[in-house]
């Protein structure tokens, strides 16, 4: 564990807490894509299958439970909680996200580090996470401007994988034979998809107005 990795996990945790804060306290999911949340629930469900078979550390297990619990409860809130569901923008959140799942599964079956059940699903979760933000970014462009909490949520979610890239660079230079092209390329694609969001998000700070 290095500082970049810890910063990445804390940023990821912060993004989840900001979204839960928004949904749980003001009972609103305005501007949030349910489809991205559903994809993230699948990402964590397929990435943390080994949560019961291989124990790494209390921290690792705790964080996996937090990410699993929060992603599924956010989906539940947005689908079934009356007050929250009412604020969900169904008409605008129309990205065909199921069309992302199958290609990621096929790609994981073709390109992986080891051909085992756990490994293929783990690789699938990497590919799926790389594109999971697309429905949210499309919704963002349709929704005129978004509230600060949603903007902060997306900013933190995009930043966490960028910090992971710094962690991989650090590990590459400090650990012999630390080479994982699949993880690196998936992480890079994921972070690059946020590029224009980051651009407008920083403009907001300079301009001092909402995220247009």
């Amino acid at each position: 564990m290095n500082i970049f990795r810890l910063a990445g996990d804390m940023t990821h945790l912060a993004s989840v807490l900001v979204l839960l804060l928004k949904i749980h306290t003001i009972k609103s999911c305005a501007g949030v894509s349910l489809r991205t949340q559903e994809l993230y629930a699948i990402v964590f469900a397929t990435r943390y299958l080994d949560i019961f078979t291989s124990f790494v550390s209390v921290y690792n297990t705790f964080m996996k439970l937090v990410f699993l619990g929060s992603s599924f409860s956010i989906v539940w809130y947005m689908r079934y909680h009356k007050a929250v569901h009412r604020t969900y923008d169904r008409e605008q959140d129309t990205f065909r996200h199921w069309f992302l799942v199958l290609p990621c599964l096929v790609l994981a079956l073709l390109i992986h580090e080891k051909f085992t059940f756990l490994e293929v699903l783990w690789t699938f979760s990497l590919y799926l996470e790389a594109v999971a933000i697309l429905p949210q970014l499309v919704l963002l462009q349709r929704t005129r401007n978004i509230d600060n909490l949603t903007g902060q949520y997306i900013f933190l979610l995009g930043g966490y994988r960028g910090l992971y890239i710094l962690n991989w660079i650090y590990r590459y230079f400090t650990e012999p034979h630390f080479v994982h092209w699949i993880t690196w390329i998936a992480g890079l694609v994921q972070t690059l998809l946020y590029a224009d969001f980051f651009y407008y998000y920083f403009l907001r700070f300079i301009g001092g107005r909402g995220v247009e």
Binding site: D9, D50, K64, K114, L118, W122, H180
Partner: peptide, 10 residues
């Protein structure tokens, strides 16, 4: 991969 040195990552 899960067995290798990435398994401690989230």
């Amino acid at each position: 991969s899960t067995e290798s040195d990435l398994k401690d990552e989230l």
